[in-house]
Computed example of a mutant assay.
Amino acid sequence: MENFESNFTEFIPGLPEELSLDCITRLPYTSHRLASAVCRRWQQLISSPDFYYHRRKSGATTLLSCFIQALPPAFSTTGWKLCTSLAYGLTVFDSLSQSWDRIPSIPQYPDGLPLFCHIASTEGKLVLMGGWDPATYDPIIDVFVYDFTQGAWRKGKDMPSKRSFFAIGASDGRVYISGGHDESKNALKSAWVYDLRTDEWTELPQMSQGRDECEGLMVGREFWVVSGYDTERQGMFDASAEVYDLDSGEWRVVDQAWEEGRCPRACIGMDKDGKLTNWSESAPAVRVGACGMVMGSRTLVTGSEYQGGPQNFYVMEGEGGQNGKMRKINVPEEYGGYVQSGCCVEV
Rank of each mutant, 00 (worst) to 15 (best):
Q43N: 15
W192K: 07
R26I: 06
M129E: 12
G309M: 05
N3K: 13
I106M: 04
Q256I: 10
I68Q: 14
T122F: 05
D273Y: 08
G336R: 08
S6E: 15
A241E: 02
E250I: 01
I46Y: 00
V288A: 08
E203Q: 13
E259W: 03
W132S: 05
V345C: 09
I168D: 05
R233W: 07
V38L: 15
I141D: 13
T149F: 08
S121C: 14
L90V: 13
E305L: 04
D147T: 02
P16T: 12
G324V: 09
T30F: 04
D94S: 11
P49Q: 10
T25L: 15
G216F: 03
M326A: 09
D50W: 02
V193N: 09
L90W: 10
D94K: 04
K81V: 08
Y53T: 13
V294A: 12
S76P: 01
I68Y: 07
K185E: 15
M218S: 00
S248K: 02
G274N: 00
G228L: 05
D101T: 12
M159W: 11
T231G: 03
S36N: 01
A170C: 03
P73Y: 00
E222H: 02
A74Y: 15
R262H: 09
G179D: 05
R265I: 03
S76R: 03
R154N: 05
M218T: 01
S6W: 11
L113S: 09
L113M: 14
S190P: 01
